Structure formats: structure tokens, C-alpha cells
Simulated scan of single mutants.
Amino acid sequence: MRCYCHSQQPFALCCQPYLQDVSPAPTPLALMRSRYSAFVLGLGDYLLQSWHPDTRGALTVDELAHTGRDTDWLDLTIVFARGASADEEGAVEFKVRYRENNRVVTLHERSHFVQVQGRWMYHSGQLNPPKIGANQLCPCDSGKKYKQCCARR
């Protein structure tokens, strides 16, 4: 079975080890993908545990699980990702499409991730972030222009 995060990888080799706490997600991108899969599967425990305690507010496992199960998740598209296992911070910009009240909605976010005691955690996000110009440096920190890097995906 292919992974819910649309990576085209088998679920058992992609998000499943993180969701079952076999190993922590090694990068912000891996955590982002596993969080999307957790929403699809309604895994409120994983979503709460991977959300930084300083920014999750009063969210509960039940609320997060309910949100996931009651949504018709359609797909995840990664715009760019930055952050390696040795970094303390990272970012992932993504678009998620889902169906709500018989219409398709797109959620576009640039998420900020921090590493706490060796585990990546979702910290915060900016909805509908400003568009990256083709000639700007790519936000993935490759040193290349955006049009020659992540825009090609």
C-alpha cells in the first residue's frame, strides 16, 4: 500500500515507522509527511505529541483525531523543505487539498519546525505565505535561485 502522504513510497517504509514510534522523523519534511498521514488516519495522539507544547494551546487528542477522521483528505503537495537531522530549525511549505461541504478546499502553509531533545516538532505556520519570486534564492537554502531548484518539482 502506498503512503497516505503521496510520497509514492510504501506506507511501511515511509510514515508508518514514525506513526508507530519505531523511530523519530529525521527531518522536518518527514515529520510534515507523517503528520499529514496522521490527519488522514485520525491519529490524534501522534498529532498532539508532534506539536510543540508552546504553540498547541488547549488542543486535545480527541479534537485532532476528530478533525482528521471527519475530513476527506485528497492530496499533499510539497512546495519546498528545509532542515536536516543536525539542524535545530526547519521549514516546509506545502499545499493540502481536502473536501469540505461538497467543495474542494486548498490549505497553503509554510510551517516552522524545531528540534527538541532530538525530536522534530511542528511549531507554527503561516497560512497563504507570500509567493517566492523565480529569481529569489530558494528558501530550501540550496543557494540556487528558486526557479532552478524547488520550483522545478
Rank of each mutant, 00 (worst) to 15 (best):
P129S: 06
Q136F: 01
D45L: 05
L74G: 08
T71M: 12
Y4I: 00
V40G: 10
T60H: 09
L48K: 11
A84M: 13
E63Q: 15
M1S: 12
A91C: 01
T27W: 06
N102S: 13
R35V: 01
V104T: 15
H112R: 15
G83P: 08
K147S: 01
L31G: 09
L59M: 14
S85K: 15
V105P: 06
G68T: 06
H112T: 13
F11M: 07
S142L: 04
K95N: 12
L127P: 09
A58D: 14
G68N: 10
N102D: 15
R69F: 13
W51Y: 12
P26G: 12
D141S: 05
F94G: 01
L41I: 04
A12D: 09
C15E: 04
Q8E: 15
S50T: 15
H108E: 14
K144C: 00
T106W: 02
C14T: 08
R153M: 10
M32G: 02
Y122A: 10
P17H: 11
F11K: 02
E89I: 14
L137N: 08
H108F: 12
R152E: 13
L31P: 10
P139L: 00
T71R: 08
C15L: 07
A84N: 13
A58L: 12
C150N: 02
L43W: 04
R119G: 03
C3S: 03
E109I: 03
N101G: 11
R99K: 15
L48D: 01
H52A: 07
L59I: 11
R69A: 14
T71F: 09
P28R: 04
K147P: 04
L48M: 08
A30L: 09
P53V: 07
A134I: 11
L48A: 09
E63M: 13
C3Y: 02
Y36I: 01
K144L: 05
C15G: 03
H123Y: 15
C138M: 00
Q9R: 12
F94L: 05
C5L: 01
D141H: 08
R153C: 07
L19K: 02
L29I: 09
L31R: 09
Y146N: 06
Y46L: 11
M32H: 00
M1T: 07
D54A: 13
D45I: 08
A134F: 09
S37R: 01
Q148R: 08
D75Q: 14
R33G: 03
C15W: 07
N135R: 05
R110W: 01
V92C: 05
T77E: 12
S85A: 15
P139E: 02
P53G: 04
Q16I: 00
A58Y: 09
R2K: 15
E93C: 11
I132Y: 06
P17Q: 12
V116T: 12
W120T: 02
T67F: 13
R82T: 07
Q16E: 13
F39L: 06
T60C: 07
Y46G: 02
Q16H: 10
G125C: 01
L76T: 01
V40A: 08
Y4M: 05
